[in-house]
C-alpha cells in the first residue's frame, strides 16, 4: 500500500469506530500524540501516589488506613497499565520514566499541591479522582486499542476511589465544628486545582482539535470541566460544603452551572514547574528510582542464579 492509501485506510477506520492496534499503520503525529498523552497519564498515576502515600501512616483508624493503602496501590497499577500501553507504541519504558525525571514529560498539575490535613485525603478522593474519572470514562472510547482497554480497567477500579473520599468527608461534615471546618478548608483549596485538571480552555488548547478528529479525545476540556461541575455541585450540597466561587449558579437556559473564570496564571505557573510541590515531587520520584536500584540488581542476580540451577 502507498502512504496515501494507508492514510485513507487509517482515517476510514477512525470514521467507522474501528480501534487502531499497535502494529497498524498510523500517522507519525498520531503516534506522538498518544505517546505524549498516555505517558503523561501514566506519570500522573505514579506521582499521584505521593500526596496520599504521605498520609498512610497517619490515617485516623485501621479501616481508613487499609482503604488508603488499597487506593494508592491501585494508582501504582494504573501507572503500570499505562506504561505498558505506551510501550506498545514502540517507546522504551525506561526512557519514558527518565523523561519524567528530567522534566521533559509532564504530569497532572494537581499533584503539585500539598495534602496538608486528613480532610485533604477525602477531598482528593472525591474531587481529584472524581475529575479524573470524568476524563477517563470518556477515554474508554478512545481510538487506540491498548489505551482504551487500560481505561476500561482503570475506570472499574476508580469508582471506589471517589466513593471512599466522599464517605470520609461525610464523616467529617457530620462531626465536630472543627472537623467540618477542616473539610471546608480542604474544599476551598482543592476546588480550583480540580477544575484545572481538565487542562487549558478549548480556545488555548494546542492539541485539542486534532485529538478530537482522531478520536483520541472524545470531548473537549471545557465540555468535561462543565460535566464535572454539574455533577459535583449537588454532591457538595449534600455534604453541606460551600463551593468557593461566588459566581457559581444554575443557568436554566443553558441547563448547566455557570462558574467563574479559572485563574489561568496560576495554572500555567504550576505547569511550568512553579507550583508548591513540583520540586519535591520530582525529587521523590528520582530518589525512588535510585534507592530501588539495588532491588533491581538483586532481582537480576537472583534470576541468573535460578537460570543456572535449572541448566545444571
Amino acid at each position: 500500500m502507498t502512504q496515501a492509501e494507508q492514510e485513507r485506510h487509517f482515517n476510514d477506520k477512525i470514521a467507522r469506530e474501528i480501534k487502531i492496534e499497535p502494529n497498524d499503520w498510523m500517522p507519525d503525529e498520531y503516534r506522538q500524540t498518544l505517546v505524549r498523552q498516555i505517558s503523561q497519564h501514566a506519570h500522573s498515576e505514579i506521582v499521584g501516589m505521593l500526596p496520599e502515600g504521605n498520609w498512610i501512616t497517619r490515617a485516623p483508624n485501621l479501616r481508613r488506613k487499609a482503604v488508603l493503602l488499597a487506593k494508592v496501590q491501585d494508582e501504582a497499577g494504573h501507572g503500570l497499565y499505562l506504561y505498558s500501553a505506551v510501550e506498545t507504541l514502540g517507546t522504551d519504558r525506561e526512557q519514558t520514566i527518565d523523561d519524567l525525571h528530567s522534566g521533559k514529560a509532564k504530569y497532572s498539575s494537581i499533584f503539585n499541591y500539598p495534602a496538608l490535613t486528613w480532610a485533604d485525603i477525602g477531598a482528593i478522593g472525591w474531587l481529584v479522582d472524581g475529575a479524573a474519572i470524568m476524563n477517563q470514562v470518556a477515554l474508554c472510547r478512545t481510538s487506540y486499542g491498548p489505551y482504551a482497554r487500560a481505561m476500561v480497567k482503570i475506570c472499574k477500579e476508580e469508582s471506589f476511589h471517589q466513593r471512599q473520599g466522599y464517605e470520609s468527608l461525610i464523616k467529617l461534615c457530620n462531626g465536630t465544628p472543627q472537623q467540618k471546618a477542616m473539610a471546608q478548608d480542604a474544599m476551598n483549596r482543592f476546588w480550583w486545582p480540580a477544575l484545572m485538571m481538565f487542562g487549558p480552555s478549548d480556545a488555548d488548547s494546542t492539541h485539542s482539535d486534532q485529538s478530537i478528529k482522531w478520536k483520541i479525545k472524545r470531548f473537549t476540556n471545557d465540555e468535561l470541566r462543565q460535566s464535572f461541575v454539574d455533577a459535583t455541585v449537588p454532591q457538595a450540597e449534600i455534604l453541606g460544603l460551600t463551593i468557593p466561587d461566588p459566581n457559581l449558579k444554575w443557568n436554566e437556559e443553558r441547563g448547566h452551572y455557570d462558574f467563574s473564570e479559572i485563574n489561568w496564571d496560576e495554572f500555567w505557573q504550576v505547569v511550568k514547574g512553579n507550583g508548591p510541590c513540583n520540586k519535591e515531587r520530582l525529587e521523590a520520584r528520582i530518589k525512588a528510582k535510585e534507592d530501588g536500584l539495588w532491588v533491581r540488581e538483586a532481582a537480576n542476580a537472583f534470576a541468573k542464579k535460578r537460570a543456572l540451577k535449572k541448566t545444571a
Binding site: 519504558r93 482497554r149 532481582a299 537460570a307
Partner: peptide, 12 residues
C-alpha cells in the same frame, strides 16, 4: 491477554 509487564524472570 490482559497486558504486559517487565520482569527479570518468569517467577517474578
Amino acid at each position: 491477554h490482559v497486558g504486559s509487564l517487565r520482569a527479570p524472570d518468569a517467577t517474578l
